[in-house]
């Protein structure tokens, strides 16, 4: 059984181990991976490698196979993901890897920031990669929710909708985070019935996940309990993937789905009901 979460100390001791692939997942590789990364780490450029344009969708199984092959990943490799922006995009990659059946995957606690904070080695040297012929053997679409899945479940007492954006976004006071002014929706607010549990409430000041008991209390006190189907969303799915990781992988909730269309879809959809 692969640990879903590994610590920087654990990883540093194992760098270069056979069967271990370290992958940095960046939203902004020019300001991150390209100027320094964990020695031997490979790069996933979130925008180019995990998304299909102009469809606006995650990559399909063939593109995922090509990505893994290009990175030299074998199906049995243990992949450790980390990245910029609070590990959001690494968590998104984690979610995509789970969809495509790669179970030996972990997230580095605290991501790129904590590795730097600890003063651990960084390099600009590109890793040596030998291409593989990766094949997807299983696809699990129960981890993903689409617009209609959410619409049909509004007010369903067996479903917990979790909005992981900031309170200002949830209440419609802003239509995008300040750092992303170009990604605003037409309307501000949230999906009716959604509770607001910001992603940031799950981590400490170093970006590491809080203790499990504390995480459990945060969700259960808001009515998000393991007996329910949980659907998480944010703006484009990256912060939702971070919360997916907490609920599904750390707390063991059995049914958790990411609605990656998120507010950038719902907030722009004609006729979709909203609350503020």
């Amino acid at each position: 059984m692969t640990m879903p979460l590994v610590e920087a100390e654990w990883l540093r001791e194992r760098l270069g181990s056979r069967g271990l692939k370290v992958v940095e997942v960046d939203y902004d590789p020019a300001s991150a991976y390209n100027i320094g990364h964990i020695p031997g780490a490979l790069l996933i450029d979130w925008k180019k490698d995990l998304n299909k344009y102009p469809e606006r969708d995650i990559v399909g199984p063939e593109e995922f196979e090509d990505l893994m092959s290009r990175l030299g990943v074998e199906p049995g490799d243990h992949v450790v993901l980390y990245g910029d922006y609070n590990n959001w995009f690494a968590a998104f990659a984690y979610w995509v890897m789970k969809i495509y059946g790669h179970d030996k995957v972990s997230l580095l606690n605290g991501g790129r920031s904590r590795w730097i904070r600890l003063g651990y080695p960084m390099t600009r040297d590109p890793p040596e990669v030998e291409r593989t012929s990766y094949r997807v053997n299983r696809i699990d679409l129960t981890l993903r929710a689409y617009f209609l899945d959410v619409l049909k479940r509004l007010r369903d007492p067996g479903v917990a909708l979790v909005d992981v954006r900031s309170p200002d976004e949830y209440h419609g006071r802003i239509t995008a985070p300040p750092e992303y002014p170009n990604e605003a929706a037409q309307r501000g607010g949230h999906i009716p019935g959604a509770v607001n549990i910001p992603w940031a409430s799950t981590v400490d000041e170093e970006g590491r996940f809080k203790p499990l008991e504390e995480l459990r209390r945060i969700y259960e006190s808001a009515g998000v309990t393991p007996d329910k189907e949980v659907i998480v969303y944010c703006r484009i799915g990256e912060r939702a993937a971070h919360t997916f990781f907490v609920l599904k992988e750390l707390l063991g909730y059995p049914r958790v789905r990411v609605y990656d269309g998120s507010w950038s879809e719902w907030g722009n959809m004609v006729g979709a009901p909203i609350e503020r």
């Binding site: 991150a32 100027i35 320094g36 920031s113 904070r117």
Partner: peptide, 12 residues
């Protein structure tokens, strides 16, 4: 405000 940005400014 974060080590990642600090590192980027140092390295660029």
């Amino acid at each position: 405000r974060d080590p990642d940005t600090w590192y980027a400014v140092k390295e660029l």
